[in-house]
């Protein structure tokens, strides 16, 4: 299979206006991915599937990833006027990267038996702007997997034929696979809490004043 750079160049030529970025992947696995812009994602994927050399006809895996807001602090040397003279002072700057949700697809070719080509699309933010183009019209295999991403991460897929909750019940309102999800309070009944469960039980109890003092009760059956 040709290299990711060649695929990127050819896809950009085939789909005018498409912005494709190569996301490097350090580590021994070496599976870098192509980040597609949301406007042209479907057209690019269509190209990847129908191009005679690539024929990436098998969309094996589709999944979501949640990236929270990140603060990255770095030290910057700034020239400042201190006590009348100009000095170079080290200052820490905090850059805030807003969080986003990501959909990752792993494409293989059953015709040429090569792959994977990893593609990803990113939402604007983690709230109202969590919308992505659906790849279900191109790959049927994405149908249930995109529904799962919607269910667990809350990404709305434009163009999906049947976007409903799939694993949780319909009345459920949270998106449980997000990193900031807090599960419902049912840890207080744990008879022998330990480790993380104990931590969680304590957390939950501190938020429930009516249970205050309950943890001081001695064992009874």
């Amino acid at each position: 299979m040709e290299s990711l750079e060649e695929i990127k160049a050819r896809a950009e030529r085939a789909v005018p206006g498409a912005k494709i970025t190569i996301v490097p992947n350090p580590g021994p696995a070496n599976q870098p991915s192509l980040l597609l812009d949301n406007e042209h994602a479907t057209a690019v994927v269509q190209f990847l599937r129908d191009d005679s050399e690539l024929r990436l006809d098998h969309c094996s895996n589709a999944t979501g990833v949640d990236w929270l807001d990140r603060k990255v602090s770095k030290k910057v040397k700034v020239k400042k006027v201190v006590e009348g003279e100009e000095k170079e002072v080290e200052e820490t700057q905090e850059d805030l990267f807003p969080g986003y949700l990501e959909a990752v697809y792993h494409l293989y070719s059953m015709t040429h038996k090569h792959g994977p080509v990893v593609i990803r699309t990113r939402t604007k933010d983690r709230a109202e702007g969590a919308r992505l183009p659906s790849l279900t019209p191109i790959y049927r295999s994405a149908e249930f997997q995109e529904r799962e991403i919607f269910d667990l991460y809350g990404v709305r897929f434009d163009g999906h034929p049947d976007l409903r909750r799939i694993l949780m019940w319909d009345e459920f309102v949270d998106y449980p696979m997000r990193k900031d999800y807090r599960e419902p309070d049912d840890y207080e009944y744990e008879p022998t809490p330990h480790d993380e469960v104990l931590e969680k039980a304590k957390q939950h109890q501190s938020t429930r004043p009516e249970l205050d003092g309950a943890e001081k009760l001695t064992a009874r059956s």
């Binding site: 580590g27 599976q31 895996n61 990833v65 994977p116």
Partner: peptide
Amino acid sequence: KPPVGEVYGRIEGPKGELGFYLIS
């Protein structure tokens, strides 16, 4: 503790392609 990166590994399970996608 594996190094930073991501991977998709798959095998031919009895039911089909069983894959694991991990981000470290």
